[in-house]
Amino acid sequence: MPHCNPCITLFLGGDLMCARGIDQILPYPGDPRLHEPYVKCAGDYVQLAERRNGPIPWPVDFAYAWGVALDEFRRRRPDLRLVNLETAVTRRGRPQPKGINYRMNPANLPLLEVAGIDCCALANNHVLDWGETGLIDTLHGLNAHGLSHAGAGLDQEDATAPAILPLPGGRLLLFAFATEDSGVPADWAAAPQRAGVARLADLSRQSLEQIAQHIQTAKQPGDRVVASIHWGGNWGFAIPEEQIDFAHGLIEEAGVDLLHGHSSHHIKAIEVYRQHLILYGCGDLLDDYEGIDGYAAYRGDLGLLYFADLDAHGRLSSLELQPTRQQRLSIQRAEGADRQWLQHTLSRECGRFGCTVRPTSENGFALVWPDSPH
């Protein structure tokens, strides 16, 4: 059915960490051997989750892990669905000497297809966990399944190129980048003759100008632009001033319409700057941390599904947030005290930027910002 106006709806998900325990419960589990200091078998993460919240009927079908997210997709019918895919997708390669190495069996890529994922940001600190061989397999696997991607490639030009996604009345360009403080080492950076990720050396004026040049080269009239950035550490609500300045610069000077930030394992603040959306940290969309103790104050098991409406000029019309809780390695609804925690935390963190959230009739939240149309 054709759209009667140029407004579009984007789904934005945080880190999709579908390796280890998630990979083990899917129809085609990969090699369970791990190279971590303490856990040597990926199935142990499944058992930890079961110990916490009850048995998981594994193997499960590809829809299982998405849980209520599939209901929300059917109800809201977003034009595009974008995630940060934080794993290598390979059976090959060598584990890099970093302590934690994620990989998903390529045979489990229908996990992304069943949710209708359109595009994956790959600029993160796990896509090269199995070396250049693992990255090449990841790129080939996504291509074979018709899944667009940005942020990693066979060389620097390939890694910095945007994913180009058709939209009613135009296109969406997704650029993806990662920073050193998210755990991306310098030798992972793509080079003219080296595969790797689109890595930002820093959040300097020079980095901003480089991104602006990439956007200016690719952008056509009517295009809307998303910058997906993996930045910052895993834990902590604070947002450094340099991130704020860089985000503002991307909007003011580089032509970015929406900034999709991730890396933290929990939700962070949301800002609307000059009518453009900045998600500083989306949290984890799906992971296998359910049975792991520590960092309880951040509630990494609680998350959000982000549905952003943008007008023809890329400005934010509305942002709806569906509260979620990861339970039995599946995305479920956050209810009761969990939902209240999310609302309170969002209101507190977004308050720094003059924003808050209000409950909606669908048991979700809507962002309210100065000069918002609500």
Rank of each mutant, 00 (worst) to 15 (best):
P6R: 08
G14F: 01
D15V: 10
M17Y: 01
A19D: 12
I25C: 05
P29G: 14
P29H: 10
G30L: 13
D31C: 12
P32Q: 13
L34M: 12
P37W: 13
A42V: 11
D44A: 06
V46E: 01
Q47M: 06
E50R: 03
P59Y: 00
A63E: 15
G67R: 02
G67T: 08
F73Q: 01
F73W: 05
R74I: 08
L82G: 09
L82P: 05
L82D: 02
T87C: 08
R91N: 11
K98M: 13
K98A: 11
M104P: 02
M104D: 07
P106A: 07
N108K: 06
L109D: 04
P110T: 07
L112H: 00
L112G: 13
D118E: 09
C120L: 07
A121I: 03
A121M: 07
N125Q: 07
L128G: 05
G131V: 15
T133W: 04
I136L: 15
L139E: 00
L142F: 00
G146A: 06
A152T: 09
G153H: 00
G153L: 07
L154V: 14
E157F: 03
P162M: 06
A163F: 00
I164D: 04
L165F: 01
L167W: 04
R171A: 05
R171E: 09
D181K: 01
D181T: 12
S182F: 09
V184M: 05
V184C: 10
A191N: 02
P192Q: 11
R194S: 14
R199D: 09
R199G: 09
L200P: 13
L203Y: 02
S204G: 15
S207F: 04
L208S: 04
H214V: 02
D223T: 00
S228M: 06
H230W: 00
G232C: 13
N234G: 13
G236T: 10
A238D: 15
I244L: 09
A247M: 03
L250Y: 02
L250H: 04
E252F: 01
E252Y: 03
E252A: 13
E253M: 00
A254T: 05
G261A: 06
S263Q: 14
S264N: 11
I270P: 06
E271Q: 07
E271C: 09
R274K: 11
R274Q: 12
H276F: 02
I278M: 02
G281F: 11
G281C: 15
D287Y: 01
D288S: 14
A296K: 06
A297K: 10
Y298T: 12
D301I: 11
D301F: 10
D301N: 14
L304F: 04
A308Q: 07
D309Y: 00
L310V: 12
D311N: 15
G314S: 02
L316F: 02
L319C: 12
L319G: 10
L321H: 01
L321D: 06
P323M: 13
Q326P: 12
Q327H: 07
S330L: 03
E335I: 13
L342V: 15
H344E: 13
L346D: 02
L346W: 01
S347E: 13
E349R: 05
C350Q: 00
G351R: 05
R352D: 10
T356H: 05
V357W: 00
N363K: 03
G364T: 08
F365G: 03
F365Y: 02
V368S: 08
